[in-house]
Amino acid sequence: MTTINTYLNFEGNCENAFNFYRSVFGGQFSHVGRFSDMPANPDYPVADEFGNQIMHIRLPISKECMLMGSDTGGHGVPLTIGNNFSISINTDSKEKADTFFEKLSADGKVTMTMEKTFWGDYFGMLTDRFGINWMISFAEEGSLE
Rank of each mutant, 00 (worst) to 15 (best):
F123Y: 15
G74Y: 03
S70L: 02
G108M: 05
D107M: 10
G124W: 01
E95T: 15
T111I: 15
N84W: 02
G76V: 07
S86R: 00
M66G: 00
V110I: 15
S62Q: 05
S105Y: 06
M68K: 02
S86V: 04
G82T: 08
E102H: 12
I89H: 02
K63C: 04
L79Y: 05
D92T: 12
F138K: 00
M68A: 09
N83H: 06
E95R: 10
K63F: 06
Y122K: 06
T80D: 12
M66T: 10
T99D: 15
M66Y: 01
T127M: 10
G69A: 04
E64L: 07
I61H: 00
K63A: 12
F85A: 14
T99M: 12
L104R: 03
T117W: 05
F138R: 00
D92S: 12
F118T: 11
I89V: 14
W134V: 04
S105C: 13
G108C: 09
M66I: 14
I81G: 09
E102Y: 11
F118R: 08
F123G: 05
D92P: 10
M135I: 13
G74A: 10
L67E: 02
D92R: 09
I81L: 13
E102K: 15
G76C: 08
K116E: 15
M68I: 03
I81A: 13
F130P: 04
C65A: 14
K94G: 10
N90T: 15
E64R: 05
G76L: 07
L67A: 03
D71T: 03
G108A: 09
M114W: 03
G108K: 05
D128V: 02
F130N: 11
F123R: 04
K96Q: 15
M68H: 01
T111W: 11
I87M: 14
D128G: 05
I87D: 04
T80S: 12
K94A: 15
D92G: 13
D71C: 08
S86F: 03
M125K: 11
K96N: 15
S137F: 02
G76W: 03
S70M: 10
V110N: 08
I61Y: 00
E64H: 08
D128H: 02
G131T: 08
W134D: 04
F101N: 01
T117K: 07
M125P: 00
E95V: 14
E115C: 12
D98L: 10
I81P: 12
M114S: 05
I136E: 06
G82V: 06
M125I: 06
A97F: 03
L79V: 12
G73H: 01
L79E: 08
N90M: 14
L126F: 01
M112Y: 12
I61N: 01
F118S: 12
G73F: 00
F85L: 11
V110Y: 11
I81D: 09
T113F: 07
M135A: 10
G82R: 05
C65H: 10
L126W: 01
K63P: 07
V77C: 11
